[in-house]
Amino acid sequence: MEFKVSPLTKIISLSGFLALGFLLVILSCALFHNYYPLFDILIFLLAPLPNTLFSKSGADNANFMSDAPSNAQDTGNFLTGVFVTSGIALPVVFYHCQLIGALSCVMSTIGGLIIYSSIVVFSWFFHSSWDQEEDTLFG
């Protein structure tokens, strides 16, 4: 017995998950009257872009038969890692410099990770359905 989840259910659940991440970051700002953690949202929203931009950057004829990633894919992976690491480290640096409190640091970090993971899960859920030629939503 195979359990299929409709695309609408996926979108609704992921949007709720994304809203939870935004809520945590915004609460970490509003509860403590300090809006430095909003930079965390920007960093985690920019984090998936390098992988998206560099993942399908042209087919190299030299690497046509090999499964090795290209230099562009490596660059995208590196930049994504830099963004994710910066998004985790930025609230810690703000806390160390006493710009935000400890609870604000924790809420901002967890909220940012939820935002990033919901974007990654969204692209992972719908990557396979974009490759299919048949339209499963309408028949």
Rank of each mutant, 00 (worst) to 15 (best):
M1S: 08
E2D: 09
K4T: 08
K4Q: 09
V5E: 12
V5M: 11
S13I: 15
L14W: 15
S15W: 15
L18H: 10
G21L: 09
G21T: 04
F22V: 06
L23R: 05
L24K: 01
S28M: 13
S28T: 09
Y35M: 08
Y36P: 01
L38H: 00
F39A: 12
L42Q: 07
I43W: 08
F44Y: 14
L45W: 06
A47T: 09
L49T: 08
L49Q: 09
L49C: 06
T52R: 10
L53H: 06
F54I: 03
F54C: 08
F54H: 03
S57K: 10
G58E: 01
G58C: 02
A62S: 08
N63R: 14
M65K: 01
S66N: 10
A68Q: 11
A68R: 11
A68G: 00
S70M: 05
S70G: 13
A72F: 06
D74N: 09
G76Q: 07
N77I: 05
F78W: 15
T80A: 11
V84H: 02
T85L: 15
S86M: 09
G87D: 06
G87C: 10
I88H: 06
I88L: 14
L90G: 00
P91I: 02
Y95N: 07
I100E: 01
A102Y: 11
A102C: 01
A102I: 10
L103N: 00
S104T: 07
S104V: 10
V106Q: 00
S108M: 05
I110M: 14
G111I: 04
G112C: 06
L113C: 14
L113H: 05
I114P: 08
Y116D: 02
S118F: 02
F122N: 00
F125T: 01
H127T: 09
H127S: 11
E133K: 12
E134Y: 14
D135K: 10
L137C: 04
